[in-house]
Amino acid sequence: MSMTSAEAVRRELSGFEGQLIGPDDSGYDEARAVYNGMIDRRPALVARCTGPQDVARVIGLARDQGLPLAVRGGGHHGAGLGTCDDGVVLDLSPLKDIEVDPAARTVRVGGGCVWGEVDRATNEHGLATPSGIISTTGVGGITLGGGLGHLTRKFGLTIDNLLEADLVLASGERVRASADENPDLFWAIRGGGGNFGVVTSFLFRLHEVDTVVAGPTFWPVELGAEVLAAYRDFLPDAPRELGAFFLFG
Protein backbone atom coordinates (compact mmCIF):
# COMPACT_ATOMS: atom_id res chain seq x y z
CA MET A 1 0.00 0.00 0.00
CA SER A 2 1.32 3.44 -0.87
CA MET A 3 1.68 5.60 2.22
CA THR A 4 2.05 8.87 0.33
CA SER A 5 -1.68 9.51 0.10
CA ALA A 6 -3.53 10.30 3.30
CA GLU A 7 -6.79 9.63 1.46
CA ALA A 8 -5.68 6.09 0.63
CA VAL A 9 -4.81 5.52 4.26
CA ARG A 10 -8.16 6.90 5.38
CA ARG A 11 -9.85 4.15 3.38
CA GLU A 12 -7.61 1.66 5.15
CA LEU A 13 -8.37 3.16 8.59
CA SER A 14 -12.10 2.67 8.59
CA GLY A 15 -13.72 4.65 11.39
CA PHE A 16 -10.73 6.88 12.08
CA GLU A 17 -12.09 10.17 13.43
CA GLY A 18 -8.94 12.28 13.55
CA GLN A 19 -6.87 14.02 10.88
CA LEU A 20 -4.50 12.27 8.49
CA ILE A 21 -1.74 14.33 6.92
CA GLY A 22 0.58 13.04 4.22
CA PRO A 23 3.47 14.60 2.27
CA ASP A 24 1.10 15.83 -0.45
CA ASP A 25 -1.23 17.61 1.97
CA SER A 26 -1.14 21.26 2.96
CA GLY A 27 0.12 21.70 6.49
CA TYR A 28 2.46 18.71 6.23
CA ASP A 29 5.60 20.65 7.16
CA GLU A 30 3.89 22.15 10.18
CA ALA A 31 2.49 18.78 11.23
CA ARG A 32 5.87 17.02 11.06
CA ALA A 33 7.82 19.72 12.92
CA VAL A 34 9.07 19.05 16.45
CA TYR A 35 10.48 21.34 19.13
CA ASN A 36 14.12 20.70 18.21
CA GLY A 37 14.52 22.58 14.94
CA MET A 38 17.62 20.54 14.06
CA ILE A 39 15.42 17.45 13.62
CA ASP A 40 14.13 17.32 10.03
CA ARG A 41 12.37 14.02 9.41
CA ARG A 42 9.75 13.21 6.82
CA PRO A 43 7.15 10.70 8.00
CA ALA A 44 4.93 9.01 5.47
CA LEU A 45 1.90 9.92 7.56
CA VAL A 46 0.98 12.08 10.55
CA ALA A 47 -2.14 10.76 12.26
CA ARG A 48 -3.74 13.17 14.74
CA CYS A 49 -5.81 10.99 17.02
CA THR A 50 -8.97 12.08 18.82
CA GLY A 51 -9.19 9.18 21.27
CA PRO A 52 -8.06 5.67 22.21
CA GLN A 53 -9.92 4.07 19.30
CA ASP A 54 -8.02 6.23 16.82
CA VAL A 55 -4.78 5.33 18.58
CA ALA A 56 -5.57 1.62 18.32
CA ARG A 57 -6.33 1.94 14.60
CA VAL A 58 -3.06 3.75 13.89
CA ILE A 59 -1.03 1.21 15.88
CA GLY A 60 -2.72 -1.57 13.92
CA LEU A 61 -1.94 0.12 10.61
CA ALA A 62 1.76 0.52 11.44
CA ARG A 63 1.94 -3.05 12.75
CA ASP A 64 0.20 -4.60 9.75
CA GLN A 65 2.24 -2.59 7.24
CA GLY A 66 5.55 -3.10 9.04
CA LEU A 67 6.13 0.65 9.29
CA PRO A 68 8.12 2.58 11.90
CA LEU A 69 5.86 4.16 14.50
CA ALA A 70 6.69 7.30 16.48
CA VAL A 71 4.43 8.61 19.24
CA ARG A 72 4.23 12.37 19.63
CA GLY A 73 2.85 14.03 22.74
CA GLY A 74 4.45 17.45 23.09
CA GLY A 75 7.11 16.79 20.45
CA HIS A 76 9.71 18.14 22.88
CA HIS A 77 12.22 15.28 22.94
CA GLY A 78 15.72 16.54 22.20
CA ALA A 79 16.60 13.59 19.98
CA GLY A 80 13.35 13.86 18.05
CA LEU A 81 11.78 10.59 19.15
CA GLY A 82 8.35 12.07 18.41
CA THR A 83 8.88 11.71 14.67
CA CYS A 84 10.46 9.36 12.13
CA ASP A 85 11.36 9.02 8.47
CA ASP A 86 9.07 7.02 6.16
CA GLY A 87 6.84 5.82 8.96
CA VAL A 88 3.78 6.84 10.93
CA VAL A 89 3.68 9.62 13.53
CA LEU A 90 0.91 8.95 16.02
CA ASP A 91 0.12 12.50 17.11
CA LEU A 92 -1.71 12.80 20.44
CA SER A 93 -1.97 16.59 20.37
CA PRO A 94 -5.81 16.64 20.07
CA LEU A 95 -6.10 14.81 23.42
CA LYS A 96 -6.25 17.95 25.54
CA ASP A 97 -8.84 17.16 28.22
CA ILE A 98 -7.86 18.29 31.73
CA GLU A 99 -10.14 17.46 34.69
CA VAL A 100 -9.17 18.84 38.10
CA ASP A 101 -10.78 17.36 41.21
CA PRO A 102 -9.88 19.82 43.99
CA ALA A 103 -11.54 17.73 46.69
CA ALA A 104 -9.62 14.57 45.79
CA ARG A 105 -6.53 16.60 44.85
CA THR A 106 -6.13 14.86 41.54
CA VAL A 107 -5.97 15.87 37.90
CA ARG A 108 -6.71 13.70 34.88
CA VAL A 109 -4.72 14.80 31.84
CA GLY A 110 -5.00 13.85 28.18
CA GLY A 111 -1.92 12.40 26.52
CA GLY A 112 -1.54 15.38 24.19
CA CYS A 113 -1.28 18.05 26.90
CA VAL A 114 1.80 20.09 27.68
CA TRP A 115 2.70 21.12 31.22
CA GLY A 116 1.82 24.78 30.82
CA GLU A 117 -1.77 23.77 30.13
CA VAL A 118 -1.89 21.52 33.18
CA ASP A 119 -0.31 24.12 35.47
CA ARG A 120 -2.84 26.76 34.39
CA ALA A 121 -5.74 24.43 35.19
CA THR A 122 -4.46 23.27 38.58
CA ASN A 123 -3.19 26.71 39.63
CA GLU A 124 -6.78 27.98 39.68
CA HIS A 125 -7.22 25.78 42.75
CA GLY A 126 -3.83 26.49 44.36
CA LEU A 127 -2.63 23.02 43.38
CA ALA A 128 0.18 21.52 41.32
CA THR A 129 2.02 18.31 40.62
CA PRO A 130 5.76 17.99 39.99
CA SER A 131 6.62 18.45 36.34
CA GLY A 132 9.49 19.83 34.30
CA ILE A 133 10.82 23.37 33.98
CA ILE A 134 9.59 24.29 30.47
CA SER A 135 5.89 24.91 29.85
CA THR A 136 5.87 23.41 26.35
CA THR A 137 7.17 20.03 27.48
CA GLY A 138 4.72 17.21 26.80
CA VAL A 139 3.12 15.49 29.79
CA GLY A 140 3.64 12.03 28.30
CA GLY A 141 7.33 12.28 27.56
CA ILE A 142 8.44 13.67 30.89
CA THR A 143 6.17 11.36 32.89
CA LEU A 144 7.31 8.19 31.17
CA GLY A 145 10.91 9.33 31.58
CA GLY A 146 10.70 10.15 35.30
CA GLY A 147 9.99 13.86 35.63
CA LEU A 148 12.40 16.17 37.44
CA GLY A 149 11.41 19.76 38.19
CA HIS A 150 11.20 22.60 40.69
CA LEU A 151 8.85 20.76 43.06
CA THR A 152 10.73 17.48 43.08
CA ARG A 153 12.64 17.75 46.36
CA LYS A 154 9.44 18.44 48.29
CA PHE A 155 6.94 16.28 46.38
CA GLY A 156 9.01 13.78 44.39
CA LEU A 157 9.32 13.03 40.69
CA THR A 158 6.39 13.19 38.31
CA ILE A 159 6.20 9.38 38.35
CA ASP A 160 5.96 9.43 42.15
CA ASN A 161 2.69 11.35 41.74
CA LEU A 162 1.22 9.26 38.92
CA LEU A 163 -1.80 7.35 40.23
CA GLU A 164 -2.96 5.61 37.07
CA ALA A 165 -2.67 5.66 33.29
CA ASP A 166 -4.87 4.54 30.42
CA LEU A 167 -2.90 2.85 27.63
CA VAL A 168 -3.34 1.31 24.22
CA LEU A 169 -1.01 -1.67 23.83
CA ALA A 170 0.74 -2.86 20.67
CA SER A 171 -2.09 -5.37 20.20
CA GLY A 172 -4.64 -2.53 20.20
CA GLU A 173 -6.00 -3.58 23.59
CA ARG A 174 -7.03 -0.76 25.93
CA VAL A 175 -5.95 -1.19 29.56
CA ARG A 176 -5.61 0.81 32.75
CA ALA A 177 -2.45 0.60 34.84
CA SER A 178 -2.31 1.50 38.54
CA ALA A 179 -1.05 0.05 41.80
CA ASP A 180 -4.13 -2.19 41.89
CA GLU A 181 -4.74 -2.84 38.19
CA ASN A 182 -1.99 -4.25 35.94
CA PRO A 183 0.62 -3.34 38.58
CA ASP A 184 3.55 -4.75 36.57
CA LEU A 185 2.71 -2.45 33.68
CA PHE A 186 2.27 0.44 36.11
CA TRP A 187 5.76 -0.24 37.47
CA ALA A 188 7.23 -0.39 33.96
CA ILE A 189 5.81 2.85 32.59
CA ARG A 190 7.00 4.92 35.56
CA GLY A 191 10.41 5.81 34.19
CA GLY A 192 10.68 2.98 31.67
CA GLY A 193 10.07 5.14 28.61
CA GLY A 194 7.38 4.84 25.98
CA ASN A 195 7.76 1.29 24.68
CA PHE A 196 5.08 -0.37 26.81
CA GLY A 197 2.10 1.24 25.13
CA VAL A 198 0.64 4.59 24.14
CA VAL A 199 -0.70 6.48 27.15
CA THR A 200 -3.84 8.38 26.29
CA SER A 201 -4.66 9.63 29.81
CA PHE A 202 -2.80 10.20 33.09
CA LEU A 203 -4.13 10.67 36.63
CA PHE A 204 -1.84 12.63 38.96
CA ARG A 205 -1.85 13.47 42.65
CA LEU A 206 -1.91 17.21 43.38
CA HIS A 207 -0.35 19.25 46.20
CA GLU A 208 -0.98 22.68 47.65
CA VAL A 209 1.49 25.06 46.01
CA ASP A 210 1.63 28.83 46.35
CA THR A 211 4.40 31.00 44.94
CA VAL A 212 7.38 29.29 43.33
CA VAL A 213 10.62 31.22 42.95
CA ALA A 214 12.94 29.55 40.46
CA GLY A 215 15.59 30.33 37.90
CA PRO A 216 19.06 29.48 36.66
CA THR A 217 22.41 30.44 38.13
CA PHE A 218 25.58 30.20 36.09
CA TRP A 219 29.08 29.19 37.16
CA PRO A 220 32.31 28.65 35.20
CA VAL A 221 32.59 24.99 34.35
CA GLU A 222 36.05 24.96 35.93
CA LEU A 223 34.35 25.51 39.31
CA GLY A 224 31.98 22.59 38.85
CA ALA A 225 33.56 20.33 41.47
CA GLU A 226 33.70 23.15 44.02
CA VAL A 227 30.08 24.18 43.45
CA LEU A 228 28.83 20.60 43.69
CA ALA A 229 30.77 20.03 46.91
CA ALA A 230 29.31 23.22 48.41
CA TYR A 231 25.79 22.16 47.43
CA ARG A 232 26.32 18.70 48.90
CA ASP A 233 27.26 20.22 52.23
CA PHE A 234 24.48 22.82 52.14
CA LEU A 235 21.53 20.65 51.12
CA PRO A 236 20.99 18.34 54.15
CA ASP A 237 19.97 21.23 56.41
CA ALA A 238 18.04 23.15 53.74
CA PRO A 239 14.20 23.10 53.78
CA ARG A 240 12.55 20.54 51.51
CA GLU A 241 11.02 23.34 49.44
CA LEU A 242 14.50 24.24 48.19
CA GLY A 243 16.07 22.15 45.47
CA ALA A 244 18.35 22.34 42.47
CA PHE A 245 19.71 20.30 39.61
CA PHE A 246 22.84 20.76 37.57
CA LEU A 247 23.47 20.95 33.85
CA PHE A 248 26.90 20.98 32.24
CA GLY A 249 27.32 22.25 28.69
Rank of each mutant, 00 (worst) to 15 (best):
R11S: 14
F16T: 02
G22W: 12
G22K: 03
P23E: 10
G27Q: 04
E30D: 13
R32T: 14
A33W: 04
A33P: 13
G37C: 08
R41M: 09
P43E: 03
L45K: 04
L45N: 12
A47R: 09
A47F: 11
R48H: 12
R48M: 14
C49P: 00
A56W: 04
V58M: 09
Q65Y: 07
A70D: 10
V71G: 02
R72H: 10
R72S: 00
G73Y: 00
G73D: 02
H76G: 03
G82P: 00
D86Y: 05
D86C: 01
V89H: 06
D91Y: 00
D91M: 00
L92G: 00
L95R: 04
L95Y: 00
L95Q: 02
L95W: 03
K96W: 10
I98H: 07
E99K: 12
V100L: 01
V100N: 06
A103P: 03
A104L: 06
G112H: 02
G112Q: 02
W115D: 00
G116T: 05
E117N: 12
D119Q: 14
T122V: 05
H125P: 07
I134Y: 00
T136H: 04
L144F: 01
L144T: 05
L148A: 09
G149N: 08
G149W: 05
H150L: 10
R153A: 07
R153I: 04
R153H: 14
L157D: 15
A165P: 07
L167S: 06
L169W: 11
A170H: 10
G172H: 08
R176D: 02
D184N: 08
L185P: 07
A188I: 10
A188V: 15
R190L: 00
G192I: 14
V198C: 11
F204C: 03
R205N: 13
L206G: 03
L206R: 07
V209P: 03
P220H: 05
G224Y: 02
A225I: 06
L228S: 06
A230S: 15
D233Q: 12
F234S: 09
F234E: 09
P239N: 14
E241N: 15
G243Q: 12
F246P: 06
L247I: 13
F248A: 05
F248K: 01
